Simulated assay, not measured.
Amino acid sequence: MNKIKLVASAFFLLAMYTSCNQTQETTKVIVTDSVIVAVPVAIELKDANSDLAYNQYLHLKDVLVLSDSTQAQGAAKDIAATLAKISGSENSTKIAYDMASEGSLSKQRILFTTLSTELITMFKKAEISSGSMFVQYCPMANDGDGGYWLASETEIRNPYYGDEMLNCGEVKETITKK
């Protein structure tokens, strides 16, 4: 009886997932005996420094989702060091270093908006080997001015509000291999 409930639950979740007008497969659903796990589809960039910067950016976004300003400082320092190795990313590097020296979470989030705008432009020009990245947007971020960010999945995890408004936002664009 429990297996029937588990299978029924898995089909229900799968139906809910596919009914949300999502046009691309962004996660793989793995069903085991007792757990359903969603795994993001990995993205790979051809340039090693760009690939590392993207992964560091995702970590920075995730610690902002957790509202952890101390970890955000360390994550910003890491991405700044990597961005310094990428030609043409001087402005992004400066913004990331500014974030690393900022202790205020609200100021870090404002700088994150600017950093995200810079990196979205950079990654749109990058050579992608596989996978997709998603440009997401929250209209309420920055006192109603809105804010964009990048994610490796379509699920909204808002870095501007954390737990306060974790799912506020939408996918605005998908960046894929050209």
Rank of each mutant, 00 (worst) to 15 (best):
P40N: 09
V41I: 15
V41A: 07
L45A: 11
L45T: 09
K46M: 09
K46F: 05
A48K: 12
A48T: 15
A48H: 10
Y54F: 15
Y54L: 14
L58K: 04
L60A: 02
D62A: 12
D62G: 13
S67R: 14
S67N: 15
D68Y: 08
S69A: 15
Q71F: 01
Q73V: 01
G74Q: 12
A75W: 12
A76L: 01
D78F: 08
A80G: 14
A81W: 00
A81N: 11
T82L: 04
A84F: 01
A84P: 01
S87G: 04
S89Y: 08
N91T: 14
K94F: 03
K94Q: 12
I95E: 03
A96C: 10
D98S: 12
D98E: 09
M99S: 03
M99C: 03
G103Q: 01
L105A: 11
K107V: 02
K107H: 03
Q108Y: 04
Q108I: 03
Q108H: 11
R109S: 08
I110R: 14
I110V: 13
F112I: 07
T113Q: 11
L115Y: 02
L115V: 05
S116F: 12
T117D: 15
T117L: 08
E118Y: 14
L119G: 03
I120R: 06
T121D: 13
T121N: 11
M122N: 02
K124E: 13
E127T: 15
E127M: 03
E127R: 07
I128R: 04
S130C: 01
S132G: 09
F134I: 09
D143T: 06
G144T: 00
D145V: 01
G146K: 09
G147Y: 01
Y148G: 00
Y148P: 00
W149L: 04
L150E: 06
A151H: 09
E153H: 08
E153S: 14
I156P: 06
I156N: 09
